[in-house]
Amino acid sequence: MILRVDSLCFSYNSKMVLDKVSFTIDRGECVAVLGVNGAGKSTLLKCINKILMPDGGCVYIEDKVVSKMPQIEIAKDIGYVPQRTNVSRMTVFDAVLLGRKPYIRLDATDKDIDIVKDILKHLSLEKYSLKYIDELSGGEFQKVLIARALAQQPKVLLLDEPTSSLDLKNQIEVLDFIKKIARERGISVVVIIHDLNLALRFADKFIMMKDSKIYSAGGQEVITEEAIRDVYSVDVKVENIRNKKIVIPV
């Protein structure tokens, strides 16, 4: 077990957004967080790596208490892709190189540059290396953000809707690549994702959130017609096609 979230609570001003959220993730496991807009998914991710300080509860990463770790140590263990961010005038290579920031003392070393080079190659971003990120398309930029989080070489990856701007091919390629890395290097991935079928294809475990709480969590068995009706108030059919679970809105 690499990540353990124990009855995490958080409120904005007095509005409760996370109410005693608990779950655990094993090494190399990919977990999808599902839920309607405003359910508290993004807030949950930000509380895990102390971008927001939780009001209560605790996050453990390999038995270390995250809230007691300095931010720079957290950054070596947890990579993060935000739901939205600014684009500044910076080249793709520089933007990804920022992911090495937790390890950089005075200047980037050849090793840092090699790591960035490899990631750019794997995500087919090489040809954009020296392009400014404010001149990229939405999907290309999103891949840059994912590349940056991977450059952190973390043990846990927190991805907040990382594929929302990607085309079908890139959605599949990028998620497959993340899954492959997760398996190879024993990285645990928490990904917020709205496309249920994409989630079913990618994730090993599912966490469904409703009204600041976890509605249900577990393997594919938690994705049922009833659960989806409860969480999203939408009627769907859940069917097995060629041994794959598929959600079809009716």
Partner: peptide
């Protein structure tokens, strides 16, 4: 100048800067 990398992370956003270890 010693904090040039930290300032670069601020260019992205405060959240990203924190996630990259900047106080």
């Amino acid at each position: 100048y010693l904090h040039r990398w930290d300032y670069n992370t601020l260019e992205a956003s405060d959240d990203v800067a924190k996630s990259l270890g900047v106080d």
